[in-house]
């Protein structure tokens, strides 16, 4: 019986041994698309892919694009300009600010795919998407064909793209290193994920948010503070804080609020300030006081500490760099590669 078992075992082993497969084909079935590199391809390879491992898709790539929308590709010349602007105004700004703290910062954390789209992504209701980010890996920028190469306007570009890029990149950062939970407590009772579109930006300022979208939830609040701060000047920042603090009203409006003829907003109180005008006459100014500026300042203090402690640089330094580069954008050659 034992012999029979051994024979059986031997038979099975032999059979399996005879069943060897052919060696695998050394060529992968997944091929990279082969196109002869043009000047932009080479420039992108040298400036995005090799140093940062970023794939910069200026050509329309079906599988990287949102097929829910009707889109068209970006123009070649405008892609050249935007590739250079993104590097100068966004990528190199972070490289510069982190040069001492972590020279490999951008290589480690930057999104790995940037996809350009020529047209807007229109929704049926007439709204449109300016930029999209997916899981910290890919950023899609729309309306590239709207760039006027003869009239580069930084403010327009901030609205269209750079606000989105700083916003999404800040998400990547806080997902890697958490910020203080104290942040969420400052305006914790007024986040409104479903109804934030009902607020104007001024409404949001009064509640202690830098934009209406910031009031949707704490993480958006955090990254909106970062992106709005970095892409705006100090003068804009102070004007925003002033707007968040109070709103001037007429004496009659003040009286109507005071005597109950008009209902006072839940988050406001009445305030007067007396002083003298330029000719030395006594004047009284009337306000609805909201105090949103204090909440924004408290949250922003946590944001600035987070960047120093977690990433080793000051957000104000990043803003200075971005603003300096914005001012010198005119000198950037946006056509030759």
């Amino acid at each position: 019986m034992k012999i029979l078992k051994y024979i059986l075992l031997l038979g099975i082993v032999s059979i399996f041994a005879s069943c060897s497969e052919d060696s695998l084909d050394s060529e992968s079935i997944f091929k990279d698309e082969k196109t002869t590199p043009n000047a932009l391809d080479t420039w992108l390879s040298d400036n995005y892919t090799s140093p940062f491992n970023i794939r910069f898709n200026y050509r329309y790539v079906d599988i990287e694009s949102d097929r829910e929308y009707n889109l068209v590709p970006a123009e070649y010349d405008k892609s050249v300009a935007l590739a250079k602007i993104i590097k100068y105004l966004w990528l190199d700004a972070y490289v510069e600010v982190t040069a001492n703290a972590d020279p490999s910062f951008m290589q480690t954390y930057c999104p790995k795919v940037i996809q350009l789209i020529g047209s807007a992504a229109w929704n049926d209701d007439g709204s449109r998407i300016l930029g999209q980010a997916e899981g910290g890996l890919k950023i899609t920028l729309y309306e590239v064909n709207a760039i006027d190469l003869n009239n580069i306007n930084v403010e327009t570009m901030n609205d269209l793209w750079f606000h989105t890029m700083h916003h999404e990149f800040a998400h990547i950062l806080h997902q890697n290193k958490l910020y203080s939970t104290d942040f969420k407590l400052i305006t914790g009772s007024t986040y409104n994920s479903a109804g934030w579109t009902d607020y104007s930006n001024t409404d949001a300022h009064h509640l202690g948010y830098i934009t209406n979208y910031a009031s949707s939830e704490p993480n958006e609040d955090f990254v909106e503070l970062v992106s709005m701060y970095v892409t705006h000047t100090e003068a804009w920042w102070q004007a925003m804080l002033a707007d968040a603090k109070q709103a001037q009203i007429s004496a009659s409006a003040y009286a109507s609020y005071a005597n109950g003829g008009t209902k006072l907003p839940d988050n406001a109180s009445l305030k007067t300030v007396t002083g003298q005008d330029a000719e030395g006459n006594d004047v009284t100014l009337y306000y609805l006081y909201y105090g949103g500026d204090e909440k924004i300042k408290q949250k922003f203090e946590i944001v600035t500490k987070y960047f120093i402690n977690s990433w080793g640089f000051k957000l104000s330094d990043l803003r200075d760099i971005v603003q300096r580069r914005s001012e010198s954008l005119d000198s950037l050659d946006l056509t030759s590669l």
């Binding site: 050509r59 068209v72 590709p73 970006a74």
Partner: peptide
């Protein structure tokens, strides 16, 4: 794929504001 914008060819596919 006509994968960069062509003013003539993509005039027939460029989306328009609703």
């Amino acid at each position: 794929t006509f994968n960069t914008f062509n003013e003539i060819f993509h005039a027939y596919s460029d989306p328009i504001e609703p």
